[in-house]
Design a binder for these strands. Structure first.
Length: 868
RNA sequence: GCCCCUGUGGCGGAAUUGGUAGACGCGACCGACUCAAAAUCGGUUUCCGCAAGGAGUGCUGGUUCGAUUCCGGCCAGGGGCACCA
């Protein structure tokens, strides 16, 4: 006897087991069908999956299952981004080991993912903390090193003096360490860098080759790379004012057109000229030291005033004979951008204006509004006027007078390129990038060890590949701050592989972004034990056809992966440059927040929503006390507005959770999790269950007439297919609702029996259309309908467009742009016929009210507009 | 400060990219079934109006036979970058 309600508790685990046993979702490397690689950003094993994961993996699973049905060999793997600080923090708090904590979390989360019924090939699973994964990463690091893609440099870093570690910029909040709360210091450390800046230009220009990426992400990456075109200009220094050995100062500018407005030069405290000038000037040396100590965190920068110190050096203007300007050391000049030196033009730059005001330097306007004359502009100018940064007409600028900004830039570049100082050009065009090399050294335990040995005699020596992996030692302690690797009694003491003398292992580990920069490539053949990748597998499966994840990775992870793929290709580990052909960034899962009278956050599970006199109210279930309803925000533990996927799957089932996640909200936008919404999804699931039961119960019968339900089914096939391919899952859901409504109508009609065959065929189509979204229910219904094997293995139905075509069209008719009537016309009628039919229509004539027709516009199959 | 995105019913959102604004769902209301409730089924639901009709996609101007869609200005919300020369 068929139960009246679908029992997901019994059915879901049963189907998951059946798929497992049949190896339905195992990917075969020798599968000859066209490939399709679907990948969702792999999770960090933080403990439990959250609703964001459910949304992400539900979307990816729809794509994977749809592509399987369309006849692709689908690669849809899953793994774990398993290194990182939370494991060490947990180890400190719970006195356990990061590995224990991590692998336990993986076990828990894997079981949770399995309960979602995802079509994953679990045979390819790995965690980045497995030595079998990171050994290959170490091998690639060595190849990158010999390929010239790695540099060891000294740079300023954020240093947390309490936790004794380097912090990423994202981990510095208001100038303090995010964990310790200690004021972050700037420290010079020697670190390992990957030379991503060698690829600045290519990473930027190749963005144009990624049409299937969101425009927003490409734009964010372009801004991050930050290309600017400008001019390097060498200024001679007044010999009477310079320290011995200094003769010139080279600056970088994007506004060479404003050179005539120069009133000072400013150099960074770390600039070589600042250092040589400091040698004989104690006051200047002290100022430079102060600048260096100043942090570069947001909080410091926002409040710090612009300060400078006159070095006494005078620079000779390259275009104005006899003019010199003072050279300052200034605290707002960065050594690592451009040349670490600028010329200041206070009239056309806010910072320069602030500086000139403070030190009472000249302000010379050189760009004026086009509708003024030079005299009017000069007469109207006041020192306190805000700097003019818009385009305009050059004045007070010698040979540039009368030109616009763009032309003036070009004119200056031409002139200075040919001018010479010490037999070299004064000016050189130069493209600069904001993108810096990627510092990957972390003073952390739970990361991939950098396979280097430091030898007093031989310098930095790579660990021989035969000695890989450099494995993390297990016996470490977390009771004191700092890097456990560094204080481990034996681990770092090794002999130099070159000279055999006593040497020291590198105790820094790699940034965890390195781990995630190539996992997608490893998935193509995780079984290869001797090499990171298998080129034939790379060629077969990459690029990833559809990558899905959060927008928070728009820059770092995606940019690093694009760089890494190029680096892998350069070192023979890959054969392409762009890893992700299609990228989709999904929105967050958000929920209402609740606060009780004491101001404490209350989780949604502890409250009940009631409607009193048309007003929504929340009440705490345990106490019966009213709770205030707050803003809708991203689910977060701190605000307790979280809904546990386990609870939802237990009370509604995975299919309901998946269906709700895909309904209503467009996938790129945030989705608001509501109890009403989940119940609606659950109701639809049961409705489908009843419809299928009713259809199965029908005897066979065919009226021989095309039934509307067949039209509806074929319309839905075409619409759902198109919308899945464009990842518009909310529209897919709407189309499926429409088909189910048509089916319900057909089943309720008295002539259902006469049309049983068409109704059953339409039901079967319905099941196939929602199968990627609610796979368990679909299998259950498929079996009832007598389908062969799994619906997961069935071919996607073919939509017949000819069945949808109507022979009569109901054309809307507008009069002066306002809809007045609908007129039925033959679908194939030409414009003249349509016009005649429309004008003959009684309701149209009534709407015209006898006014003369001036013009009739017929848009075929769309609309008719009559102008009177 | 610079760059970008988004504003449509009570709510989430559709609208074939210049052609019937409000698909589909949620909520609400009315009705049927029931002793009753739940579930289910039928109906109503942009606003004003009894109706005929009129207004309506943040505001405002424009282009067009026709604008949610294109262009200009403004307002609001959100995001990215930021002493980057």
């Amino acid at each position: 006897m068929r139960p009246s309600r679908y029992n997901f508790r019994e059915a879901e685990p049963r189907w998951q087991k059946s798929w497992d046993e049949a190896k339905t979702f195992a990917t075969r490397t020798d599968d000859p069908r066209p490939k399709y690689y679907v990948l969702e950003m792999f999770p960090y094993p933080s403990g439990r999956i959250h609703m964001g994961h459910v949304r992400n993996y539900a979307m990816g699973d729809v794509v994977a299952r749809y592509r399987r049905a369309k006849g692709h060999a689908v690669l849809h793997p899953m793994g774990w981004d398993a290194f990182g600080m939370p494991a060490e923090n947990a180890a400190m708090e719970k006195k356990s080991h990061p590995a224990t904590w991590t692998y336990q979390n993986i076990a828990t989360m894997k079981a949770q993912l399995k309960s979602m019924g995802l079509s994953l090939d679990w045979a390819r699973e790995f965690a980045t903390c497995d030595p079998s994964y990171y050994r290959h990463q170490q091998a690639m690091f060595l190849d990158f090193l010999s390929g010239g893609l790695v540099a060891r440099k000294t740079s300023k870093v954020n240093w947390d003096p309490v936790d004794q570690t380097v912090l990423a910029n994202e981990q510095v909040i208001d100038g303090r360490g995010w964990r310790s709360g200690a004021l972050v210091e700037q420290r010079e450390l020697t670190q390992w860098f990957l030379k991503i800046s060698d690829y600045s230009d290519e990473l930027l220009s190749a963005l144009d080759s990624l049409p299937r990426w969101p425009e927003k992400v490409r734009l964010m990456q372009a801004n991050w790379i930050g290309r600017s075109e400008g001019l390097m200009v060498r200024w001679a220094l007044d010999a009477a004012t310079v320290p011995a050995g200094e003769t010139e100062l080279e600056i970088y500018t994007t506004r060479p057109d404003t050179l005539f407005g120069a009133s000072f030069m400013a150099i960074a405290a770390d600039h070589p000229l600042a250092k040589s000038a400091s040698a004989k000037n104690a006051e200047l040396a002290a100022f430079c030291e102060e600048c260096r100590r100043m942090g570069t965190s947001q909080a410091v920068l926002d409040t710090a005033e612009k300060r400078g110190f006159d070095t006494g050096i005078r620079a000779i203007h390259p275009l104005v004979p006899g003019k010199t300007v003072p050279v300052y050391v200034a605290n707002f000049i960065l050594m690592d951008y451009g040349t670490g030196a600028i010329f200041g033009c206070p009239a056309h730059d806010q910072r320069d204006h602030d500086f000139a005001t403070k030190y009472d330097l000249p302000i010379i306007p050189v760009v004026r509004a086009a509708d003024l004359t030079d005299d009017v502009a000069n007469a109207a100018f006041r020192r306190e006027d805000p700097p003019v940064t818009e385009d305009g007409i050059l004045f007070n600028s010698g040979f540039l007078d009368g030109l616009n900004v763009a032309d003036a830039k070009e004119a200056v570049a031409r002139k200075l390129e040919t001018a010479s100082l010490d037999n070299r050009p004064v000016g050189t065009r130069k493209v600069n990038y904001r993108l810096r090399d990627w510092g990957i050294s972390r003073q952390r335990y739970w990361g991939c060890p950098i396979p280097i040995i430091h030898c007093e005699a031989c310098g930095t020596v790579p660990v021989p590949k035969k000695d890989l992996p450099v494995k993390l030692p297990d016996d470490v302690t977390f009771d004191v701050p700092g890097n456990p690797l560094d204080r481990h009694p034996t681990w770092k003491h090794v002999n130099c592989p070159q000279c055999g003398l006593k040497a020291r292992r590198e105790t820094d580990t790699m940034d965890t972004f390195v781990d995630s920069s190539w996992y997608f490539a490893r998935f193509t053949d995780p079984f290869n034990e001797s090499e990171p990748t298998t080129l034939s597998a790379i060629q077969k499966w990459l690029p990833v056809d559809q990558y899905i994840g959060g927008i928070e990775h728009a820059i770092l992870h995606l940019l690093y992966s694009r760089f890494f793929t190029r680096a892998m290709t350069k070192t023979g580990h890959a054969t392409l440059s762009e890893p992700f052909d299609g990228l989709f960034t999904q929105g967050m899962v958000v929920h209402e927040t609740y606060k009780n009278a004491d101001g404490a956050w209350v989780p949604p599970a502890d409250i009940r929503i009631e409607t009193v006199e048309g007003e929504r109210r929340a009440v705490e279930i345990a106490s019966g006390q009213p709770v205030s309803i707050g803003a809708i925000e991203k689910m977060s533990k701190s605000k307790k507005n979280v809904v546990d996927p386990d609870d939802i799957i237990a009370s509604y089932g995975a299919d309901t959770a998946r269906w709700f996640m895909l309904s209503d909200s467009p996938p790129e936008r945030d989705v608001i999790w509501t109890e009403d919404g989940v119940q609606g999804a659950s109701r639809f699931l049961q409705k489908v269950w009843r419809l299928v039961g009713d259809a199965v119960a029908l005897p066979t019968g065919d009226s021989g007439q095309l039934h509307p339900v067949t039209k509806a089914a074929h319309k839905a096939i075409l619409a759902v297919g198109e919308d899945v391919e464009r990842l518009r899952f909310n529209r897919c859901v709407a189309h499926i609702h429409e088909l189910s409504n048509a089916l319900a109508e057909a089943l309720a009609s008295p002539d259902a029996t006469k049309n049983a065959d068409q109704i059953k065929a339409a039901t079967r189509i319905l099941v196939q259309l929602f199968a990627p979204m609610m796979p368990h229910l679909a299998e259950e219904c498929w079996t009832e309908l007598g389908g062969e094997g799994f619906v997961a293995d069935a071919a996607w139905p073919v939509g017949d467009a000819s069945l949808i075509v109507e022979d009569q069209l109901l054309l809307p008719v507008q009069v002066n742009g306002r809809k007045r009537a609908d007129v039925s016309v033959p679908a194939e009628a030409d414009n003249a016929t349509v016009e005649a039919l429309v004008l003959a229509d009684a309701s149209v004539q009534a709407a015209l009210g006898g006014k003369p027709v001036r013009k009739v516009i017929v848009v075929p199959k769309r609309i008719v507009n009559i102008v009177v």
